[in-house]
Design a binder for these strands. Structure first.
Lengths: 340, 340
DNA sequence: TAGGTTCATGTAAGGGCTTACATCGACCCA
DNA sequence: TGGGTCGATGTAAGCCCTTACATGAACCTA
């Protein structure tokens, strides 16, 4: 019982070579003669050798891994970003650690724990106190911040919010929807705040005392539905709901259905993110596409560049977004035709 | 340039203690006197010490991490499982490596690479050749298989498919829907195969030559829509579509809308998984709930039990599923009321 | 006051790899 | 034939921790 697993020494003995040669074979070093390599590989197989990653990491001083800290792993938005991050990290030969802070008691502890085992870290949203971020940064850990205000000199990846929020709001206003309610909490994230800014700016441009009221809500269907029901319960019902993300918009769809309101005739609804299901809703959801996978991929690349030491100056990248006009804003034929 | 990061020795020097004491402080060993601990912690902070996880892993022979191999990280189904897995792993103090095989060229390579850095592995679906699984198993790596046929003596976590597929099909038949088409490829996964089996069994029970045709499709909205359009294009239009998962069902909703068919009056549709959005569709989607988070959590627990060596005998767990009757099967009032 | 406990800390031997450098033949050319 | 090259392999010094065991001081008891 408790027998030790085979190590590089086991293999070396079995094959009658030195551990250096075994190591070279394992790493595919071409300096090893073909015949030797074959023999060593055979030995590896027969003794059941599985190289120890920790030992390798210790010797090379590289973990070959990056960490991703998320507020919450669920939801299509996060899934999209993770997907892109994972693919990019993988393409660069790195493994990906993921950690969701929502399920954990002490995020700081968790993050500093994670930081022991990675070469760099991607931190998304308001998951970790700035202080912890700064601390890690001071320790020299390559860091990329996603959808989060900058801290010190980290790289930051964000997406364009303000301009398109303004454009989309103007679009609704120009279609005669005067009374528009913003559903989402501007204080919940920098992204939400910027969307709110754009929303307000569009109204200001048009002049006049137009009713603008943010309704607080978490960014999930259930909360969106509740907030929409509340927003629609007033005497002078709004003509449109500007939802801070697509999940909220889906909740708003449900609310509209419950109240017997037809979209977009009685009520226009817009979302944000362009999650995969957005186009399958009936009517298709007008929303703003974020390049989810690209956000993740870019973050991975940046953090790995830092790990490799190739860039020093902190970079803030703002990725473009794109307004996807479908039917829910009242633009196209109603019906639920399937649209790109 | 290239200055080495501080190690345990740096801290020991700075604090005037031995490295053993520093180690003890770092791990919270209560044997250290309070005053010493305080001093050491101060030194850690001032020199900017970040413990090296690889060195620790090497010394303890534990990576404190498990790996998760996925076919594809996107989609609500996978997201749900990952979420549960991550939370459970985190609660047990383990980190989680995730790897999606879809984005990678050589899954075997990838998995054996990953296996160097984890104490155990969770493999989901048909992502990796059985041979590779067997190899790892032989190497003594704790392994849990998810939604995948057993290989050798691994633990397996699955969910109940057949019985509820049969019950759901019978439900449709009893509501007078005679012509039902199964949308999904039974060959694509054991889960799909079992759902198909249940679907067939229900028909057999009712006797008679009822049209049963599986339509091949990947498990995504787009493919579901295409398959549904095809299924509905025949002269004697089916009265119901039994979709192998919810994403396919969403595609079917889109197809129905395009053809001007009302759900459930003209066409009943059922899904599988009960992804979060299912209840927000209009009409609410009748589907079968899988305990997504629980699947993941259970897998994490099992693999960690194996790591700890507490259980040896391979276990196959089949988690129960639950039929969620909403409106799309024709059961409740039509309209889009929001239902649990 | 000698011997025994207890508590805090130190010593040193690993843990399993990578890699700079040394070694050793074989081969080549003058 | 001697010296030089080159290619394949070995030697050994790390990489940074953990932990069994040793040490030593302080305190207690008979």
């Amino acid at each position: 019982m408790g027998k030790r697993p085979p190590t590089i020494y086991t293999v070396a003995n079995h094959a009658g070579v030195s551990i250096a040669t075994v190591s070279r074979v394992d790493r595919g070093d071409p300096a090893v003669a073909g015949s030797t390599a074959t023999r060593v590989r055979a030995s590896m197989r027969t003794v059941g050798y599985r190289p120890n990653g920790a030992a390798r990491a210790l010797a090379t001083r590289r973990h070959r891994a990056i960490g991703l800290v998320f507020p919450d792993l669920s939801g299509p938005y996060y899934a999209g970003v993770i997907l892109g991050l994972e693919a990019a990290a993988g393409a660069l030969g790195q493994n990906l650690f993921i950690v969701g802070t929502d399920s954990r008691a002490r995020p700081e502890q968790l993050v500093s724990d994670l930081s022991r085992s990675v070469d760099g870290l991607v931190v998304m949203g308001r998951t970790v106190p700035d202080e912890v971020i700064a601390e890690l940064q001071r320790g020299g850990l390559p860091l990329v911040l996603l959808a989060r205000p900058a801290v010190g000199s980290s790289d930051v990846v964000r997406t364009e919010n303000r301009r398109n929020a303004e454009a989309l709001t103007r679009h609704l206003l120009e279609h005669g929807r005067r009374r528009i309610v913003f559903i989402g909490d501007p204080a919940s994230s920098p992204d939400a705040a910027e969307r709110w800014d754009g929303f307000v700016a569009a109204h200001r441009d048009r002049g006049g005392p137009i009713p603008i009221r943010p309704v607080i809500s978490a960014f999930r269907e259930g909360e969106g539905r509740a907030a929409a029901l509340q927003a629609l319960a007033v005497k002078s019902r709004p003509a449109a709901l500007f939802c801070a993300n697509d999940e909220i918009a889906m909740g708003a769809y449900a609310a509209a259905a419950e109240l017997g309101l037809t979209i977009p005739t009685d009520l226009a609804i817009t979302g944000w993110d362009d999650i995969p299901v957005a186009r399958f809703l009936a009517p298709g959801l007008t929303t703003v596409r974020q390049p989810l996978a690209e956000i993740g991929a870019l973050a991975a690349r940046l953090v790995l560049e830092r790990v490799a030491g190739s860039h020093k100056r902190p970079v803030t990248t703002v990725l473009p977004t794109e307004i996807m006009i479908r039917s829910s804003c009242g633009c196209r034929s109603q019906g639920g035709t399937w649209e790109r």
